[in-house]
């Protein structure tokens, strides 16, 4: 077995009195798509943000491609290997879609403008919104904005992609266009992905690994079949019942 590309080792994080993460350990291998689910407040998003250093954990360590976050002197450089997609897209409203995508390649990776733009066009086409490149985010639909956000993250050609509830803020009809992009990323490009989501249909078809978190701990971590057909923990069963049979 090769070294996992993301290693979370006994990470704990407390906000004031609230324990957000409680000795969480997890390994993610190259090319794996891991889906994390759980009730709100369970620490899923916090865990994701620990991986790229947006949240500072108090104990334990996270290694990304061998680099320890604790000892890392140059977080911006490390983040070039980790792409992140947010629930509320967070495109920069004062820049066109194209500029949104080329900003980091130009400023952080120091690519020449032409090269950055070529990359941007490539990924815009990949996610299917090349015709929206010159528009401002406010003119795009939610689904288009999120796909633009995915292209923005991909343009840095990261080794790992983190998705923080990417479809939770979307109108129902736009959820599938984003999920298709994510599926192609996982299956065709073999991208290593960690996805926090409630979209169980997507999870069943695309995920390699399933994780259930509650109150800052990983309660269950198993393959897709085991997770849905024979979950081990009671809490997992309860959660799945509520979420799969909504009415």
């Amino acid at each position: 077995m090769t070294t996992p590309i993301v290693q979370i080792q006994n990470v704990s994080l407390t906000f004031d009195q609230f324990v957000a993460l409680d000795k969480v350990s997890l390994d993610v291998h190259v090319g794996q798509c891991t889906v994390i689910c759980g009730p709100s407040g369970s620490g899923k998003s916090t865990l994701l943000r620990c991986i790229n250093g947006l949240e500072r954990f108090q104990s334990g360590d996270v290694l990304v491609d061998g680099t320890s976050l604790r000892q890392c002197r140059d977080l911006p450089k490390l983040r070039l290997n980790i792409g992140m997609v947010f629930q509320h897209f967070e495109l920069y409203p004062h820049m066109t879609v194209l500029d949104n995508i080329t900003l980091a390649p130009i400023k952080a990776k120091k690519l020449p403008k032409a090269e950055a733009q070529a990359l941007a066009w490539h990924y815009l086409e990949r996610v299917g919104i090349a015709d929206q490149a010159g528009k401002f985010p406010g003119h795009l639909s939610g689904g288009q904005q999120q796909r633009a956000a995915i292209a923005r993250a991909l343009a840095l050609q990261p080794k790992v992609m983190l998705f923080d509830e990417p479809t939770s803020a979307l109108d129902p009809e736009m959820i599938s266009e984003v999920l298709y992009v994510m599926r192609d990323l996982a299956k065709d490009d073999g991208m290593t992905m960690l996805v926090v989501t409630h979209e169980m249909g997507f999870a069943r078809k695309v995920a390699d690994d399933m994780i259930f978190m509650d109150s800052g701990r990983i309660i269950e971590h198993s393959s897709v079949e085991e997770f849905f057909d024979m979950p081990k923990a009671v809490r997992t069963k309860e959660f799945l019942n509520k979420i799969l049979t909504k009415f």
Partner: peptide, 28 residues
């Protein structure tokens, strides 16, 4: 903070994020 997080997560430094992302919006 979320715009700040978006900028930082794409490898920009704090200063770069302030300059290109936060300040233009703040001034407006």
């Amino acid at each position: 903070t979320r715009q700040m997080q978006a900028g930082l997560s794409s490898g920009l430094t704090h200063v770069q994020t302030m300059r290109h992302i936060i300040m233009p919006q703040a001034i407006r």
